[in-house]
């Protein structure tokens, strides 16, 4: 197991370097530059050239790459051109909300998706099963922002149950207790989390259902039933535990994908997270930020895949890695 882990970690290195190379290549060939978005007619061509050189010095690409990697190892990802702050600081500010959003959405999807998946597997062809099948189909077919705008209109504007945008009501927060502030954040997170979690809830439902179905058909379940075990015990202790294994391994993939998929949701609800920052960075050609965000998310995905494999090995003693 340990050798497998070490081998996998070592394998991540060339993959990550490959990713960085591709990203760097993209940045170098992007048209315009940070100065082109400063459309001030009073700036002469001479002044633009000076600013351009200061903001983005013209070094050969391998040297830039080298500098960036060395700096990154020391925790320095450069300066955001637009915000004039260290990229790490920028990422740090905004990754928190994205994390909260993704995490909440993940928990919600698991809490809803998995039990319903189990239910529909154990009671096939019942109303619950059919309803959940329809729901999961709808869930993976609905465009995110469509759903988001519908919810926004219905719950926030018409019914006034939830806030329109943002992560907290800051005016309120200044004079409120810690508990009140946390509740306020939670209240603001509900709608975005539901929207973000729609597709993952549907997925969890489907995967749990098929996994459970496969397990239930196994011989050892039949044995358990023959032994006279109560149906409940059979299902929960034996079938579920085994069925859940592939689901758990999915977590390793879901988390990075939720982080990057939050782009749409954050834009609709003005939730101050990474998604909005990345789109802004692309629009203003803020290369250090684009590079930083892409690199970080790619690394997280790679690590996530590794974690998924390891979890699988831990959870299922049948799996042996050499």
């Amino acid at each position: 197991m340990r050798t497998y882990l070490i081998r996998r970690v070592i394998q991540i290195i060339p993959v990550f370097l490959g990713i960085l190379l591709i990203l760097f290549f993209l940045m170098e060939h992007a048209p315009g530059g940070p100065v082109s978005t400063m459309m001030d007619p009073k700036l002469t061509a001479e002044q633009k050239a000076i600013l351009s050189e200061r903001l983005d010095p013209k070094l050969p690409i391998h040297q830039k790459f080298f500098n960036w990697i060395i700096a990154a190892f020391q925790g320095n990802l450069g300066y955001s051109i637009k915000h004039r702050r260290p990229v790490t600081e920028l990422l740090g500010d905004f990754i928190g909300p994205t994390f909260i959003l993704s995490f909440t959405s993940l928990i919600l999807s698991m809490l809803i998706g998995i039990p319903i998946g189990v239910l529909s597997a154990t009671q096939q062809r019942s109303l619950a099963d059919n309803a959940s099948t329809v729901f999961s189909l709808v869930g993976i077919s609905m465009p995110t922002f469509f759903f988001g705008l519908l919810l926004l209109k219905f719950f926030a504007v018409d019914l006034r149950l939830f806030p329109l945008y943002g992560m907290r009501d800051n005016l309120l927060a200044r004079n409120a207790t810690w508990l009140a502030r946390q509740l306020d954040v939670a209240w603001h997170t509900v709608l975005p989390a539901v929207v973000l979690g729609l597709a993952s809830t549907a997925s969890f439902m489907r995967y749990t259902r098929s996994s459970m179905l496969e397990v239930i058909r196994q011989d050892y379940i039949r044995t358990a039933r023959a032994k006279g075990l109560k149906e409940r015990v059979t299902i929960y202790r034996h079938a579920f535990r085994n069925a859940i294994i592939p689901i758990i391994t999915l977590l390793g993939f879901w988390i990075p994908s939720l982080l990057s998929g939050a782009v749409m949701t954050e834009t609709i609800f003005a939730y101050p997270g990474l998604g909005k920052i990345s789109v802004d960075a692309v629009n203003t050609r803020d290369y250090p930020v684009i590079l930083g965000v892409n690199a970080m998310l790619s690394l997280l995905t790679l690590v996530g895949a590794l974690v998924a494999d390891v979890l699988y090995a831990i959870a299922d003693p049948r799996i042996k890695y050499e």
């Binding site: 993959v15 990550f16 990713i19 990203l23 993209l26 990075p256 994908s257 982080l259 990057s260 998929g261 782009v263 749409m264 990345s278 789109v279 692309v282 684009i290 965000v293 892409n294 998310l297 790619s298 690394l299 995905t301 790679l302 895949a305």
Partner: peptide, 10 residues
């Protein structure tokens, strides 16, 4: 490993 939407945008 590329974050899908963000890379598309890039």
């Amino acid at each position: 490993s590329f974050p899908f939407l963000i890379v598309c945008v890039t």
